[in-house]
Computed example of a mutant assay.
Amino acid sequence: MGSALGNGMVLALSIWDDYAAYMQWLDSDYPTDKAASTPGVARGTCSANSGIPATVESVSASASVTFSNIKWGDIGSTFGPGQPVGPTTGPTTGPTTAPPPTQTGVAEWGQCGGIGYVGSTTCQSPYTCHVLNPYYSQCY
């Protein structure tokens, strides 16, 4: 893992609502038209029907997901001087900045609040700021 991190990695976010491949690409045999013994096809122990969206949605209808405090950029570019560049034991609470708005207030889907946030807390019309967790509020 250390060597992989040193070479750089890609963050992948996924939600169990994949009508195209039922999430089989993540943890089942995929692609489905090849034998599980083919290198790269056996990706996990889940059955081929464990990720059918209609089943997942009926069993977990109120499920939701929030992705927050995500930074991206060249390796080493998302932290300022004196900030840790490795794993931390908890959420980052240091100041974050929002991109400059094109109108008065934060655009749709932009951050509008949260612990350590220093940008605008007003959303562009007709959007309003919604608290998603103590560290992130978003305009929608």
Rank of each mutant, 00 (worst) to 15 (best):
residue 91 P to Q: 12
residue 128 T to G: 05
residue 63 A to K: 13
residue 98 A to H: 10
residue 124 Q to W: 00
residue 73 G to N: 03
residue 94 G to D: 07
residue 77 S to F: 03
residue 92 T to I: 09
residue 41 V to C: 07
residue 118 V to R: 05
residue 24 Q to A: 13
residue 119 G to V: 03
residue 32 T to G: 15
residue 72 W to F: 13
residue 47 S to I: 03
residue 129 C to Q: 02
residue 42 A to F: 08
residue 39 P to A: 15
residue 95 P to D: 07
residue 130 H to W: 09
residue 38 T to E: 15
residue 15 I to T: 07
residue 97 T to N: 10
residue 59 V to M: 13
residue 125 S to G: 02
residue 60 S to D: 15
residue 109 W to L: 12
residue 108 E to W: 01
residue 10 V to T: 11
residue 42 A to E: 11
residue 91 P to G: 05
residue 49 N to S: 15
residue 132 L to C: 03
residue 48 A to W: 11
residue 77 S to Y: 02
residue 25 W to H: 14
residue 51 G to H: 04
residue 29 D to M: 10
residue 6 G to E: 09
residue 8 G to R: 01
residue 28 S to G: 13
residue 44 G to Y: 04
residue 19 Y to C: 08
residue 112 C to L: 04
residue 41 V to I: 15
residue 26 L to I: 12
residue 50 S to H: 06
residue 83 Q to F: 01
residue 110 G to M: 01
residue 10 V to Q: 05
residue 46 C to E: 11
residue 44 G to C: 09
residue 110 G to D: 00
residue 95 P to V: 04
residue 62 S to R: 11
residue 89 T to M: 12
residue 62 S to A: 15
residue 27 D to P: 02
residue 95 P to E: 06
residue 111 Q to S: 02
residue 75 I to D: 10
residue 92 T to D: 14
residue 47 S to N: 14
residue 133 N to R: 10
residue 88 T to F: 01
residue 85 V to N: 15
residue 133 N to A: 04
residue 31 P to E: 06
residue 119 G to S: 04
residue 55 T to N: 15
residue 41 V to R: 03
residue 137 S to H: 13
residue 81 P to G: 09
residue 118 V to D: 03
residue 123 C to A: 06
residue 84 P to E: 04
residue 59 V to S: 14
residue 19 Y to S: 08
residue 68 S to F: 05
residue 16 W to F: 06
residue 113 G to C: 04
residue 25 W to F: 14
residue 57 E to Y: 13
